[in-house]
Computed example of a mutant assay.
Amino acid sequence: MANGDHDSPRRAGGLFLDECSRWQLMMRETHGMGWTRVSTEVVHQGLFLSLFRDFVIRPDGSRGTYEHVAVDDTVRVVALDGQGHVVLVEDDFCLQARRVLHLPGGGTSGQEPCTAARRELAEETGRTASEIRALSIIDPLPGVTTARTHLYLATGLREGPPSREATEAAMQVITMPLSAAVAAVEDGRITEAGSVVGLLLAHRYQKG
């Protein structure tokens, strides 16, 4: 998925965003852990995200505001071939203004995470998997959004043609031993949060 987690919605108009917004509002009736939401307002509603301002009562009883972003959940896929090599993608990221090496993945676009993981793997790399299993779920930016990243391990790979979006025109597939990808995490070449956690978990799974 090109440009971080901003893949194009697979549905017409703003349907994806409307559904995401309704879900976020439902989840934010109270913040929990002493936070209470009194009311909320939409500051900005765009094609890929919404910005909300909540009027809240803080844990100490004082009143204030809390701004946060509503976006779709995302997926990252650790795809391993029969030789223990992992399939990565490298692409131009607009905000980082550099090429970023990361695991295949993107927004769920309203799909179940496992279905979205299979779709993103096929679209970005052309690979399909005979088996896919959940590794974990992470909260990459819990102070900014409730969106979560679902991590999967895919095996039994078959190659085919990718089906990328226009924003992914510069994307390249890179395969390397899983141990080499872990080394890239350790030396700072791979920095995207879901990719870092997914690779480390897959490495532990492979070893044990």
Rank of each mutant, 00 (worst) to 15 (best):
E168F: 03
V197G: 08
G188T: 15
R189E: 10
G82I: 13
V87N: 06
L157W: 01
E192M: 08
T128A: 05
A122W: 05
V89K: 03
D73K: 03
G156V: 08
G106W: 02
T146R: 12
I137K: 04
G105A: 14
V144D: 15
G82N: 13
L101E: 11
P104V: 02
T155G: 09
P177S: 07
H150V: 07
L95K: 15
P161L: 10
Q96C: 09
E186L: 11
I174S: 05
D91T: 07
E124P: 09
G82E: 15
V75D: 14
T145M: 15
C114K: 11
H203M: 15
R189G: 10
E168V: 09
L178A: 03
V86N: 02
L103R: 00
A117R: 09
T125W: 03
I132E: 10
V86D: 06
P140Y: 15
A166M: 04
Y152Q: 11
L157D: 09
T115M: 10
D91I: 02
R127S: 14
G156M: 06
F93A: 10
H150S: 06
V185T: 07
L199E: 12
V75L: 03
A193F: 12
T115K: 07
L201H: 07
P177Y: 03
V78F: 00
T74Y: 00
R133L: 04
V89S: 06
V100H: 07
V77P: 00
V75Y: 00
A166P: 08
G143N: 06
D73V: 06
D91N: 04
H150F: 12
V173S: 00
A180Q: 09
R99I: 06
Q83D: 09
A117G: 07
T146E: 10
T74L: 01
V182N: 00
Y152H: 10
